[in-house]
Structure formats: structure tokens, C-alpha cells
Design a protein around this nucleic acid. Structure first.
Lengths: 215, 215
DNA sequence: TAGATTGTTAATCGATTAACAATC
DNA sequence: TAGATTGTTAATCGATTAACAATC
């Protein structure tokens, strides 16, 4: 799976879509799928799918299609999901709570093993099988649990501080829902998930385009 | 503000980022900002910012920069936020609850005026100032309130059904958090917000790149 | 074999970056 | 005026689409 050129972000974002749909196909007992059919299901052109996959190797059979379970396994390895990343969530408001119970995370192999908050009404509660820990003990839990990925759902005002603490505790990647740019050392991956962009896009298209459709 | 060519989605996604930062600048009492400085704050190149803005007009002053409040107002009109869209949320689990209380939505001018669920333990509760209505009354509320945008945070299994009902009630745009492709008539805008893609990307980069950084 | 579908190469399209003239 | 910064045009870069030979 050694690729020469850097893979574009657009490709990386489509891989989980392929993977999730392949899981559904597997559940439905379908063994083989063509790029044509898969594309129909996902609203992606078959050419795009084939191009994406060949970034990593040749997983299909000409004249046949792709073996679902085999392709699944390949994508798991490409994304790196076989190792069941451990995840910690800081800020157990409703959003953090929702994420702690988000089934799709589990299905992708992510294990939430640390929940952190400052609110004493929340600390000690069992959320999706994990007890909420005071955020002052976050470092300790991250290290003892071996948590590698942190999710930040705290208020924006404290997000940077929480990120600093995560980095100090040895977290390697951060997914932040705080609407601001976090500064972290170069070797840490930070992705921001911005819940308000979707609504803004809808506003734009409703305002400016006579009509249209997108997925 | 009539533009000749279709504006790319990439531009549309950056506009809300500009807007939010301009609001912060305004709060801080800063009157003028250059593309250089704004770019620094957002991690976007100044050329990119200027290029994006000139899709819609010439809002800056050469040799000076952009007047913050003026540019704010222009972007509001470009995105179409001046009209204070009314939003309804179907599925008041923790995610729906979180969105109903999400401050940034309000700051962007979105007004949540309808909350819908099937669970009798949730129906009747006051969430962020709005009382949760039985989803069977959704159509009625959407029409009486004049709700134009729907957010779907229900389980995936019922998302399509909810979308159908929203469309039937006259909703124009839908933001869906359900991890599946919704089918709707051509004149309805649907955007999917996929919470698990961020984690998958982090997994990919942690697995495949020696080190790196992204915002 | 004949039909189907991949993987790959080439062509197109679009977005970002660079450069600079215009002008405040 | 001199310095700064925009808006615009040109150059580059990258991603998607199209076409088709390879082959199951």
C-alpha cells in the first residue's frame, strides 16, 4: 500500500463513505459490487471511485467488479481503522454526550474511553458506558488509557486551553467543534468540524440559486 | 451582486469563516483589516481571500484594506443571512438538543422555532426556549411558523421518512446528520453533515503520514 | 468466446497561487 | 508624494472526467 504521491484530501474524505456503504452491502449479503452500482448508491461517478481506489492499489477484478469483503478490509487498512483508536472527549454537554453515544464511531472502530468535564453535575455520570472524569484528571486518564485522539466540544473560550492539555498528555490528533483556529505543535493533527457552515451554505443557495440540489 | 459565473462551493464554505472572524474583529473595535491580517488569523492566504471576495464585488479600498463593518454587511447579503431563516429540528436527542442551543446559529441569524420528536418523554420539554412538538404535528408547525430550513438528527432508519414529511410541508433546504443519502425533489437543497469523516481523516493521517498539520 | 468492468492514460476542467498595475 | 494594499490578469497546479486497452 505504498503510494508515491500524496493522496488528496478529497480522496481521503470519500474513503469513509465507500467503507460505510460496503458495510451495508456486506450486511445485505452482497458479495460483489461494481463501481457503477456503488457510484449510483453514493451519488459519486464510477470513474471517480475507481480513480480513488487505484491511488492505493488494484483491488478489483476486471469484468467482475469488487469483492465487497475484500475491499472493505483494504479500506480499513488504508484508513488505519484496524487498530481501534482510543478516543477521549472533553466537554460533555449535549454535543459531547451525543458523540459519546454515536454508533457510527464504534462501527468504524473508534473506542471512546475517556470523557472529561468541569461541571460537578456531570462528573461521575455514566455516559454510554464511560464515567465522566474531572477535566483536571484528563492527562492521567489519557495516559493510563492510552488515548490517542481527542475530541473537543467545550465552549470556544476554553478550547485552546483544553487542546494544550491534550497535547501535553500525548494526544496525537484532535477533532475540534469549537469555532476557532487552535494552535498546536506541528506534529499534532487538528481537524475542525464546523456545524454552522452547512446552514450557511443552505442559506446561500436558497438566496442565490433559483433552484438546485446537492448531496 | 449579480455574478456571471457560478461560484464554487469552496468559496461558499469560506464565506462564513470570514464572516465570523469579522464579527470578532467588530467586537474588538477594529475598523479596518487587510487581507494579509485576516488571512493570518484564519490560516488562509490573502490572495485567496481577495479572490473569493471579488467574486461578488469590490469591497475593499486599495492601499487601505477592508472596512470591517461594511464587509460584514456585504457578506451577510451574499450568504443571505439578513433574512433570519427559520429552522426546525427533527429528532431531539442529544445532538438535536445541542443544535437547538447552539449559539453560533443564532449569531448567524438562524432562528430555531420548531423542535420535533416522537418520544413522549421529550415532547413538551422546553429546549432553548422552544417547546418540543410531536413529530406528527410537524407539518402544521412548519407551515404556521413559516419554517424554511429543516435539520434532521433522527436515527438513520427514519431520516428519509422525516425528509419526505419536511418536503411535503414546504421546507426548502435540509441539513441532515443521518449517515445516508436522502432522496428529495430537485428543487430542495440537501446537505449532509457527516460527523464521522473527521475522525476517519485523523485516523488516515496518523496512520499514513509521518507527521503533519492541518486546519 | 462474448460481455463486462477494471485500471490507466490523456483531456478537460476548475481552483489556487503568483505577479503586478491601479489607486487609495 | 511614497507606501500600502486592493482587484485583476496570467501561470500553475491539482482534481475530475472521458476514453479505452487490458483482462477476467
Amino acid at each position: 500500500m505504498r503510494q508515491k504521491k500524496a493522496i488528496s484530501d478529497a480522496v481521503i474524505e470519500r474513503l469513509p463513505l465507500y467503507y460505510r456503504d460496503l458495510l451495508l452491502l456486506q450486511d445485505a449479503g452482497i458479495d460483489i459490487i461494481s463501481s457503477e452500482k456503488l457510484g449510483e448508491r453514493l451519488g459519486i461517478t464510477p470513474e471517480q471511485i475507481r480513480k480513488d481506489l487505484t491511488c492505493f492499489g488494484a483491488f478489483g477484478k476486471k469484468g467482475v467488479g469488487y469483492y465487497v469483503s475484500e475491499l472493505c478490509q483494504q479500506i480499513v487498512e488504508i484508513i488505519g481503522l484496524q487498530q481501534h483508536w482510543k478516543v477521549g472527549i472533553a466537554g460533555i454537554g449535549h454535543l459531547g454526550w451525543a458523540l459519546a453515544n454515536y454508533k457510527t464511531f464504534g462501527r468504524l472502530g473508534f473506542r471512546t474511553t475517556g470523557l472529561f468535564d468541569v461541571d460537578h453535575r456531570i462528573i461521575g455520570q455514566n455516559v454510554g458506558g464511560v464515567v465522566v472524569t474531572p477535566i483536571v484528571e484528563m492527562r492521567e486518564v489519557i495516559q493510563s488509557e492510552g488515548i490517542q485522539i481527542g475530541i473537543i466540544t467545550t465552549p470556544a473560550a476554553v478550547a485552546q486551553q483544553v487542546a494544550d492539555q491534550m497535547v501535553e498528555a500525548g494526544i496525537k490528533g484532535i477533532l475540534s467543534f469549537a469555532p476557532l483556529r487552535l494552535s498546536v505543535p506541528d506534529h499534532i493533527f487538528v481537524f475542525r468540524e464546523d456545524l454552522s457552515i452547512g446552514l450557511s451554505r443552505i442559506s446561500y443557495y436558497l438566496t442565490n440559486k433559483p433552484q438546485g440540489q446537492e448531496t
